Computed example of a mutant assay.
Amino acid sequence: MQQRSPEGINTVKWLAAVALGLAVWIALYSQLQNLADYGMSLTGIAADTHLGQALNFFVFETPKVLMLLALIVFAMGVIQTFVAPERTRQLLSGRRLGIGNVMAASLGIVTPFCSCSAVPLFIGFLQAGVPLGVTFSFLISAPMVNEVALGLLFGLFGWKIALLYLGLGLAVAIVAGLVIGKLGMEKHLEDWVQAIQAKGGAVIANLDRKQTWPERFEAGIRHLKEIVGKVWPYIVLGVAVGAGIHGYVPQNFMAGIMGKGAWWSVPAAVLIGVPMYSNAAGIIPVVQALLGKGAALGTVLAFMMSVTALSFPEMIILRKVLKPRLIATFVGVVSAGILFVGYVFNAVL
């Protein structure tokens, strides 16, 4: 009987450990809401109060986002061992008509991440050598235009609204990425990101031999420790801000200033949406409620875009990755695109 080699035994151990870890992750993730509800019941705070809503949001969203981040970062670390930076750069950047931005924005459609969960992929793309403007196209598209948002919009408002949202949302992501890319602002990445970008690119580019699975999993663990270890305090702070807004900002107040008549309603809706935090699936029920209270569709969708693509918690997390000038440029370019979308919707509907 042929015995397994030490390398084969090590591979089996790693595969078993990863499978067990994934099973535990799925079991915990599926019970987060129940655990949050149980934790709230121990506090004695009524769930329908402002404080109760804010606490429930924080207790549920904090582990949810951290768990998603851990899974995504680990997977990205493993995936990066298969693809050299030059190949990734060629795949996403392109040399004609911003094809890299189009591909990155399109990739964002099929990745239903909230803005905070998309940040690790943003860092992973930079580390793999993908141009800054292309990574921004993904960062904007991933939370703002995805299959969850499109499916809900189609079910609530029909295919024309869903298709218009898809087209305009992709346009914002592509054009914003192109503009940021043309500005050449790579020097405004934080120093530690530039360091791992250079380090990671060099390491992966020199992998001439085929790596073993244990080596790939070890790379994923290193990636997990390096990225999540730096970002997690910002995530906790960001979700805390979002929880406060979620619990204490009344919907009636927002609906009252989101009418179609005033020219300032669209920028006001964007400003209100920025401090909030939610993914597309979470914010669309709010959109439906606001529309039921008389808010204009374009204004509400601009609000939705600002929540998913320009949330203040996301800015807090991105501050660990980007310097203030690049964050300001990102916010300005994307805000202009969202305002355009809001005014177009209000004009044609």
Rank of each mutant, 00 (worst) to 15 (best):
S93N: 12
A75Y: 05
L71H: 02
S106A: 15
L97N: 10
G94Q: 02
G98A: 09
G100S: 04
G77E: 08
F74R: 00
I79Y: 03
E86C: 02
F82G: 05
V102W: 14
Q80E: 01
M103N: 08
G77W: 01
V73T: 14
G94K: 11
M103H: 02
L97V: 14
L97C: 12
S93G: 01
I109C: 12
A104S: 10
Q80C: 09
N101H: 12
L91E: 01
I79K: 05
L91T: 05
R89K: 12
F74Y: 13
R87W: 05
S106L: 15
P85Y: 10
F82P: 01
G77M: 10
A104V: 12
R87C: 01
M103S: 05
A75K: 00
S93P: 06
M76P: 00
Q90H: 09
R89E: 11
V73K: 04
R96L: 11
V73L: 07
I109P: 09
V78C: 14
R87S: 12
A75P: 03
T81L: 03
L107F: 14
I79D: 00
R95F: 08
G94T: 09
P85C: 09
T81I: 13
V102P: 01
T88D: 03
A75L: 15
N101Y: 06
G98P: 08
V102C: 09
I109T: 08
F74S: 01
N101A: 13
I79Q: 00
V102M: 10
A84S: 14
Q90A: 09
A84G: 11
G100M: 13
S106V: 15
I109L: 15
R96D: 00
A84C: 01
F74A: 02
R89L: 07
L107P: 09
I79G: 05
T88W: 12
G98M: 07
A84D: 03
R96C: 04
Q80L: 10
V73P: 04
L107Y: 02
S106G: 10
A105W: 04
Q80W: 06
L71A: 14
G77C: 08
F82I: 08
I109D: 03
I109W: 04
G100W: 07
G108L: 13
V102L: 14
L97H: 08
F74E: 00
G77H: 05
Q90F: 02
T81K: 07
S106W: 07
T81D: 03
L97P: 01
R89D: 11
A84E: 04
P85A: 04
V83P: 02
M103A: 15
R89N: 15
R96T: 13
G98F: 13
V102K: 05
A105K: 07
V83I: 15
A75C: 13
I109S: 04
A84I: 05
E86K: 15
S106F: 14
A75F: 13
S93R: 06
M76D: 07
R96V: 14
Q80P: 04
L91W: 09
E86D: 13
G108C: 11
R96A: 07
V78M: 15
R87L: 11
V73W: 04
E86Y: 08
L91K: 02
M103G: 02
V83T: 08
L92P: 04
M103P: 00
L91S: 12
R95P: 06
V78K: 08
G108N: 11
A84W: 00
I99P: 05
R87K: 10
